[in-house]
Design a protein around this nucleic acid. Structure first.
Length: 480
RNA sequence: GCCGAGGUGGCAGAAUGGUUAAUGCGACGGACUGCAGAUCCGUUUCCUGGGGGUUCGAUUCCCUCCCUCGGCUCCA
């Protein structure tokens, strides 16, 4: 296992990562409440933790990655009511869309997506335990609240002092609470909502308790790593700590907290409730998954990034295309001729440099997942290889694989450079070269009118033909 | 008001108690090309919010001020 250091939001320091029972790592990331389509900001958090899981696995850790789904809450109920729909069905639909986006983005590292409503019996057990132990109280309507005053460590993660909070700053104070900082863990049902029987009457789980029950059941009372966007630090993660540690008596609930920086748009946090969102699905459609991953990983995960429509992803498209060029050429050659293709061996110093770079990439990423530095190093490799692009044609399969090693590293950890299906299979792969041969003959006899006609005909079919000094290449036109 | 994270070139965005502050985008110039496109090469010397302090040396550490963003019981 490689030595990894990461910034822990609880201690506010970069620390060496030591799992409770190596090589196993329990990773929990707060997933989304699927009441609306996912936006570009959500994608950032999930791509980042996908990278974290991929990298840890590469380095020998056995990561069990859980990402929850809050499939029932006030917003879902409100949205469903507007559309005369069932909240659980609405959540299911949005979740499936979200999974499709994640699949397209190459986020495949999550082992399990638990749904909150599948854990109601366990949630009731935890609520009951908290009441029994005196940490929670039952209000007159049958709702159950956690009493923050009973848990002195409350506020350790966020640095907040309960006395300094401004109750009602953004959300109205619930009159059933003993104290404004208390939070609901079991909500008495209003007629028409999905509800479950409980000792306190029909109701449904509060948000915070869902997570502690699922992590407790799936990862244990104490586990290694908890991640999410930093907007969840207060109150959600503070509440998770209080609930779990109060209910189990075991602390700390989690050893390392990782929080990702937020994506803003027009200077404000991108947020469903503000409405300044840019659809994740649309961004993938327009730019492809690789450009989006590049966008996310091209900044340190903890820094805030501003999303500028019409600019941010366009810039990344240019940069990524340049970065990926040698990787694409190598992949094309290996795809065409197979891994055993004949040719010259690669010069030893170049092969060595590739190996050294891979080591450098690993150590860079192992220091608090600095994907930006890794990408900068990859640009260095691309610069070096682009000078050799005309010579790649003459190298043997093993040599190409050696030169590809840094890109293969990025495929594994960053999820970049993955070929989205071959563009060169099927009938096109046979027919287009025939047409290009005819065009080449036309060009060589000076019949440029015919050459241009063939190029235009192909263009109309969505195939772009590009000449370079020695050869002609073709590709499918960009989707937009 | 309180808590937290920040302020780096035209833009995005890293890093560091010490030679030219990474990388990319953009811009400009050139190469290649029948044309188009793509690609490549070069240039972009004057970039670390203001003021103090510590130090031989600060963009980095400390204090203070200003500004921005996030949170204050909806949120990735």
């Amino acid at each position: 296992m490689r030595r990894v250091s990461l910034y822990d939001s609880m201690t506010r320091a970069t620390r060496g990562f030591a799992p409770i029972s190596p090589p196993r790592v329990g990773l929990y990331v707060c997933g989304l409440t699927p009441y609306a389509p996912a936006h570009v900001g959500h994608g950032r958090t999930f791509v980042i933790f996908d990278m974290v899981a991929r990298a840890l696995r590469r380095w020998g850790y056995r990561v069990f990655y859980v990402q929850n789904v809050t499939n029932l809450d006030d917003k879902l109920i409100a949205r469903a009511a507007e559309a005369d729909d069932d909240p659980l069905a609405l959540a299911e639909r949005h979740f499936l869309d979200f999974r499709r986006s994640m699949e397209r983005l190459g986020v495949r590292s999550v082992n399990y997506y638990p749904f909150a409503t599948d854990y109601v019996p366990e949630i009731l057990d935890q609520v009951r335990a908290l009441v029994d132990r005196g940490f929670a109280y039952v209000a007159s309507d049958g709702s159950v609240y956690f009493e923050v005053a009973k848990f002195p460590r409350y506020g350790a993660l966020s640095g907040q002092k309960v006395t300094a909070l401004q109750p009602g700053a953004r959300v109205e104070v619930d009159p059933r609470k003993r104290s404004p900082e208390d939070f609901v863990i079991w909500k008495a049902a209003t007629p028409g909502e999905p509800s479950w029987e409980s000792p306190w009457g029909p109701g449904r789980p509060g948000w915070h308790v869902e997570d502690t029950v699922m992590t407790g059941k799936l990862l244990g009372a104490r586990y290694d790593l908890h991640g999410a966007g930093l907007d969840l630090i207060f109150p959600h993660h503070e509440a998770e700590i209080a609930l779990s540690e109060a209910a189990t008596g075991l602390a700390p609930m989690v050893n390392y907290w990782m929080h990702t920086g937020l994506v803003s748009m027009t200077g404000e946090k991108m947020s469903k409730s503000i409405g300044n969102v840019s659809s994740l699905e649309q961004a993938i459609d327009d730019f492809g998954p690789a450009v989006l991953r590049f966008y996310y990983l091209n900044a340190h995960y903890r820094s805030a990034v501003d999303f500028v429509p019409g600019k941010s992803l366009e810039e990344c498209r240019e940069a990524y295309a340049r970065l990926a060029l040698p990787a694409t050429r190598i992949a094309e050659l290996l795809e065409r001729d197979g891994p055993d293709r004949a040719g010259d061996p690669v010069p030893a110093e170049l092969a060595d440099a590739a190996g050294e770079l891979v080591e450098q990439l690993d150590s860079t990423l192992a220091e608090d997942f600095n994907s930006r530095e890794a990408i900068a190093a990859l640009f260095g490799w691309t610069r070096r290889l682009t000078e050799l692009v005309p010579q790649l044609e003459h190298l043997d399969g093993a040599g190409l694989a050696q030169l590809d090693a840094p890109y293969a590293w990025a495929r594994e950890t960053l999820g970049l450079f993955e070929r989205e299906g071959s563009t060169r299979t099927g009938a096109w792969a046979r027919v287009v070269p025939l047409l290009l041969d005819a065009r080449a003959r036309a060009r060589s006899r000076g019949d440029f009118a015919e050459a241009d006609r063939i190029r235009e005909e192909l263009r109309a079919l969505g195939i772009v033909v590009e000449d370079s000094s020695g050869s002609t290449r073709w590709r499918f036109a960009d989707p937009s």
